[in-house]
Nucleic acid binder design. Structure first.
Lengths: 209, 209
DNA sequence: GCTTGTGAAGAGATTCACAGCA
DNA sequence: TGCTGTGAATCTCTTCACAAGC
């Protein structure tokens, strides 16, 4: 099948496959199968095969997939060769943790700037990262070629922060605030709401009582 | 419609509606409409109406929904009257941020215990929270009636931590580690993988190039 | 033999569009 | 008139089941 269009649900699983493949490569496995990948990614084998078929990838019937080759295909589909600089907005507990998180840089998402409104910390350096004020955002985005904005502000500041990011030309936002932000539809937002996740777990706990 | 069975996709949106309703109540709005809720929750109005219909809730045709009454209905469906104590496992940057996060307690998910393997910090107190070693987990879960386990450990320790949580009787897990953990299917796991979210954004950035 | 790749069937979620009712 | 509630249509995602091919 051609690489034409990859379903969203598949895109969301590709990072899991990539991780599994990286682990398999590290373990020295030359080949693998949809069964093994399914087990590792926590999905079923038919789904793995269908997902991989969208990449136009070719395993070998009766044998499986070549780990190196498949890693290459999935990496290319995800565009992991690219580096997308990130700016973290809001340096509360969560923002600080995200800014320090080394796993991002390793995966091609270096945190290149931090923003906060608090004049006490603007100008200081946190873990090697200089803290800037919001009115420097546009210049930072331009100079450092920021591609992704992370919102880790309190709920009240979320929309305002999103507006600033959009105005500065950021086209992708990862929003940790407990507030839905509205942006032009040329901008992609992914919400990660921790309280919502807990409430969903709570719903099922209650139901199972 | 009867309250019999609420689709997962709907459950995942109920926390958004609840938040919107809380904001509307705070703003003194006595009634609202599916249009307003849709706007605030970032979905469309038909979806709001269909979702709410699963709660057996009744708005008033031609008028809208009573904010107080609807808040009550959604709260009951989500079971927010319950309190579900949380244990945070792994006190790196993210774990610490989660342990400190005050929003959880406010929403009925108090962090009642913290676990880490590092003997340097076991026995110390971080933000009023005593740090325990993993072999105290079972007793803590029992004594403090822990309902939810949060995994914020490095990837290598994730499965082991999940096993400990399950053995201790925890039935709901929120997993922040970049690793799929396997658990009995009586246990519900929700994964929140920050790198995966960034990679999904990266995929779309690349595509739009 | 064994495992992929994929049409076809099935399940689930979204959207439409309009009847029902204050 | 205006907005809800909901069957029906549509779209999307998942799963099945088996032919294709090493």
């Amino acid at each position: 099948m051609a690489t034409g269009h990859i379903p969203e649900a598949t895109v969301a699983r590709l990072p899991l496959y990539l991780r599994s493949l990286t682990e398999l490569a590290a373990a020295g496995e030359p080949t693998t199968s949809s069964d093994v990948l399914a087990e590792r990614a926590g999905v079923n084998a038919a789904k793995v095969r269908k997902d991989l078929s969208y990449l136009g990838t070719h395993g070998t019937r009766g044998v499986g997939y070549d780990v190196r080759h498949l890693t290459f295909e999935v990496s290319r589909a995800l565009g992991v060769a690219n580096t997308w600089p990130v700016v973290v907005c809001g340096l509360g507990n969560l923002g600080r943790a995200l800014a320090k998180h080394t796993g991002f840089t390793e995966r091609g998402f270096p945190v290149v700037a931090a923003i906060d409104v608090d004049p006490e910390i603007v100008g200081t350096t946190i873990d090697g990262l200089r803290v800037h004020s919001p009115d420097e955002l546009a210049a930072l985005v331009h100079d450092l070629e920021v591609a992704i904005g992370v919102i880790a502000t309190p709920a009240e500041a979320a929309q305002e922060t999103a507006d600033l990011l959009v105005a500065a030309g950021v086209r992708s936002i990862l929003d940790f605030s407990p507030r839905v932000v509205s942006v032009p539809d040329t901008v992609e937002v992914r919400m990660v709401d921790l309280s919502t996740e807990l409430q969903i777990l709570g719903f099922h706990l209650q139901r199972d009582l």
